[in-house]
Design a protein around this nucleic acid. Sequence first.
RNA 1: GGCCCAGUAGUUCAACUGGAUAGAAUAUCAGAUUUCGGCUCUGAGGGUUGGGGGUUCGAAUCCUCCCUGGGUCACCA
Length: 595
Amino acid sequence: MKAENFLRIAVTQALEEFFPGANVPVEFQATRKDFEGDITLVIFAMLKVIKGSPEAIGNQIGAHLVAHVPEVSAYNVVKGFLNISLNDSFYISAFQEITSARDFGVAAPTGRALMVEYSSPNTNKPLHLGHIRNNLLGYSVSEILKAAGHKVYKTQIINDRGIHICKSMWAWQTYGQGETPESTGLKGDKLVGNYYVKFDQVYKEQQKELLSQGRTQEQAEAEAPAILAAKEMLRQWEQGDPDVVALWKTMNQWVYDGFEQTYSKLGVDFDKNYFESDTYLLGKKDIEHGLAQGVFYQKEDGSVWCDLTDQGLDQKLVLRSDGTSVYMTQDIGTAIQRMSDYPDANGMIYTVGNEQDYHFKVLFLILSRLGYVWAQNLYHLSYGMVDLPSGKMKSREGTVVDADDLIDQMEQTAQEITENLGKIEALSKQEKTDLFKTIGLGALKYYILKVDPKKRILFNPEESVDFQGNTGPFIQYAYARIQSILRKAHQEHSSLLSEKPFENLTLTDKERALIKTLMQYPDKIQEAAAAYSPALVANFTYDLVKEFNAFYQNVSILGAEDNSLLCFRVYLADMVGQVIKSSCALLGIEVPHQM
RNA sequence: GGCCCAGUAGUUCAACUGGAUAGAAUAUCAGAUUUCGGCUCUGAGGGUUGGGGGUUCGAAUCCUCCCUGGGUCACCA
């Protein structure tokens, strides 16, 4: 049982005794490290309801707790804080509870189902560093929500249609000379991306020429043959022209194959893919319904709008005067579609960059005005840009960091650093390359996920692979070390480990602190799920590792004086390892058995 | 210009959502060990939380006005 629960009961009893009838708020928090105690009751918070000096009230309650609650061993009062110390038998039984729990930390099913959308790439260019943050966040939040007891459907919408797709199609058709991924040895997304770039070059040149012939910039942009050709192609695609559709299918397949490789390297996956080419006509019907309901209004030219000025927002167009849809129309339609595809789901999380904050604010508002109950369970998982020390990423200037290149670079950096440390000579070649992948990706993932999603990231590849400090490899290293201890323990003391005879131990501060941290794990998952923030999990894991290192430093786990102590320490190390592994899994990070 | 987000040690990030003396890591410096200047320990310095005002027992956190950076305000997606 959690300490907070039985303490709350006892404190309420004490208050009832000292201040009958008063409805006093009981607020606990973890005791800060520099103070004696395990859990702290905040007396200040009570002063609004009851009168008196906080010290006196704290002492009164503290004395009552020591007298009536067997788990409470001592207390002290500092200003308005009552610090409560719990005895070792409480910690030991709490620890036993943890070790015997299956899937410690994972909550019981809540019966809720949610859909998480992430990645959602365009099929005209390869994935870049920004997508990596998106993918890592979306995947990790999905795992965290699952651990918090929800059912999760991971999904992406593939933006496989539109003028940008036709641009690379036209460029390939015109300049490609039949190149394929096989003939060039390029990943499909790279090949297609090259033609997207090619289009832009040609387009720019044509504009320059038109400008020199005296056209305005606007005219040049509109009249360049390349853009006209791409537009024509889009028209043909929409009419189902067989040749264009065939080309579109072929080139998109190249891109999907390329994306699949990148996803699999990143370790992310999806339960369901939506394609914009299937869904881009959705939403019009819903606009009509909304119009009938009075949620929208129509102007004389026939365009349809939503008036959000009463919410401090603007008027928002939802259907053009020619009856065609805009981005918002599609998003309204797909949201409704998805919720009917998955009737058990009653909410969605959209992992999309913060440049679309406004869009999603409006989208959610409109959906709720349309009367969908699930509209209140929509969340925009908004994240900031990723910058590099070398400067900002701008696709126009070609300073985009390609996702595959970055992953390769991370593995290579991991290799250099690991080999320099020289602890892995015993491993086979295959084991080594696997290890470098694990470390390189772990570094990348941890570095990105440890930062609050909302904030911009400055990503420094070198720093991220550091084996010291708040980094992925540091955590992985701690795990590997624990595994090595456990291997030895099982070799040398296997008979001892079958039972857990550690009832009457006296714990050290370090051991108590470690158990305390372990006990927080389930709450951390809930917190992270409520905040949609992998950063909370990441920082918890780091705290746990630090706590373990502090314990490990002054203690010889396998050299304990008596058997039950040794057994206890091995179980403690084992449990720490399990929690590290499990919380790393929530971040999508693998842990190595040796490094 | 309106709206949204961010601003915390030199640097990269925390701070349990209003709690105690704002913490880690990294970099720097000083010791210890090491003949390796690289590895490992120990310790230190480093902060007006962008600035001013306000709210209260108590503010990095809340309200307000400024400053800086980013985003967004299309019949683009």
